[in-house]
Simulated assay, not measured.
Amino acid sequence: MGQLDKEFIKDLMEVTEKELTPKQAKIVQAAIEIFSEKGFAATSTSEIAKRAGVAEGTIFRHYKTKKDLLISIVLPVISKFAVPFFAEKFLNEVFHDENLEDIEGLLKILIKNRFEFVKSNAPLIKILLQEMAYHSEIRESFKTVFVTKVLPKFQAAVEHFQKQNQIADFPAATVLRLTMTTIIGFLVTRFIIMPDYPWDDEKEIEYTIQFVRNGLKEI
């Protein structure tokens, strides 16, 4: 796997607060590749072991079940990437007062930041989206992040722009739904559904900004 995936292994060790053994790192790398390619249900531990170059029993010395291996990969995507990065570092950057003068500027920062995040972590995002519908642990973790971390910050930004009459008087949760559905749809299409299409990324970002901006305008 490439450098970006090695960075994820490094971050995974920070989340778990323990160093992965070389064999365990190979298991995680192989699982990310195959879960992304085939999905969790269609992947066997023997396939993971073969690609990792380890005995199948080695997997079960580190993870009780295949699902434990999945959760060990996916939850850090939410908790380490999504909580500190998305809800703290990212939102502090995006919703800093100097960025709140114009909603288009805010949307540009928001989309470009998420663009680079998904570009760097597309296999992990694919696994997260694929498996969220089937595993309550993943859904609940994702829900907690958005309800407790993202929505309050987003609500403050929405109220700020509504006072300036830049966006319509929609409930904050509705603005979040409309905005994130459009942005996530763009990113999923760009990096997961049609990654090889000859996109003009700068233009697509601008089109997305204008689409969201026009949809939120005061009527």
Rank of each mutant, 00 (worst) to 15 (best):
T21E: 15
A82E: 11
N165S: 09
F60V: 05
Y63D: 13
I193Y: 15
I205Q: 04
K108E: 06
G53V: 05
Q24K: 14
A87W: 01
E98L: 11
T181N: 15
T182Q: 02
K149C: 14
M132C: 07
S46M: 08
I184L: 11
F35G: 04
K10F: 14
A30T: 03
T58Q: 14
N121K: 10
V94H: 02
G105M: 13
L70Q: 00
I125N: 09
V54A: 12
P76G: 13
G185N: 04
F95I: 04
T148G: 10
D5P: 09
I78K: 06
V118I: 14
E159V: 10
I27G: 06
R51I: 05
K50C: 08
L110T: 07
L91A: 08
F186V: 03
A122E: 13
M180Q: 13
I205V: 08
L75V: 07
D201T: 14
E104W: 01
K10P: 09
K50L: 14
A168N: 11
A168G: 12
L176R: 14
E104M: 09
H135Q: 06
K10T: 15
K112R: 13
G105S: 14
S36P: 04
A31C: 10
F146R: 04
I127A: 08
M180C: 11
A172T: 02
V54Q: 06
K203A: 10
Q162S: 03
V212N: 09
F115T: 14
V77D: 06
H160R: 07
F146V: 01
F8W: 03
R61M: 14
I59N: 05
V145P: 00
N92S: 10
E7H: 08
A173S: 11
I9Q: 00
L178C: 13
G2V: 02
V94M: 09
Q162V: 09
K67P: 12
D200W: 03
K203R: 03
K89V: 15
Q24H: 02
P123E: 12
S136C: 08
D97M: 02
A122G: 05
E56L: 05
A55K: 15
E56Q: 15
V74D: 04
F85C: 06
A172D: 02
L106S: 01
T21D: 14
L176C: 09
G2P: 13
S72M: 10
Q162H: 08
F40W: 08
A133D: 06
K108P: 01
F146E: 03
F186L: 04
L176A: 15
E37H: 05
N99F: 00
L70Y: 01
T21L: 07
L176M: 13
G53T: 07
L124C: 08
P84Q: 03
D97T: 00
R139V: 08
F115M: 12
I209N: 04
R177Y: 09
E202M: 02
V175D: 01
F154I: 01
K119Q: 11
A52M: 06
I167C: 11
A52I: 07
I109Q: 03
T21I: 11
Q24V: 10
L216Q: 00
A55C: 14
S79L: 11
A55S: 15
L100S: 06
I111S: 05
M132N: 12
I205E: 00
S36D: 13
P171K: 13
L128S: 07
